[in-house]
Amino acid sequence: MKLQITLGTIAMIFIMAFPAVAGGTGELQKYFSDASAKVKATNNPIEKREILNNSFINMSKALNTVQNLPFISENDRAGINNLKTKLQEKQDELSGSNGFVRVSDGQLNTFSDYVVQSSEQAFEVITISLVALLLIILIVILIV
């Protein structure tokens, strides 16, 4: 699986590098915005939770994969780690675990806005290099 992801990543870099670089962190934000749109498109709170939870899980997987790549710098690793922590907190709040109060069904749309807006002003994102961001985006695309 790891080999597949690595080879896929290399291939995708060449195919998608240009538009992704042009988008920069915007692609990362678009990922959460798309999830938010899906959340709002359904009235079923179970589905809303599932959409949000899957978006967190897939992003976490991508972050883990990039973090473990040998050429990722220490600074990027630290930035990614911080981003993972923030993501985990949101996942915990969604489910009401690790000391968080569970997001109520009526607040799920607002919570999805919060996730988008947090990603758009994530302090950690600007500390991560463009190369690492690009890889994160590409791997998320491969996973989804």
């Binding site: 988008g23 920069g24 962190t25 915007g26 934000q29 678009k30 915005s33 798309d34 938010s36 749109a37 709002k40 806005d113 988008v116 807006q117 758009e120």
Partner: peptide, 12 residues
């Protein structure tokens, strides 16, 4: 820089 953001209707 990267100045993209989305409103609550997912408009860029």
């Amino acid at each position: 820089g990267d100045y993209l953001y989305h409103d609550t209707s997912s408009n860029e």
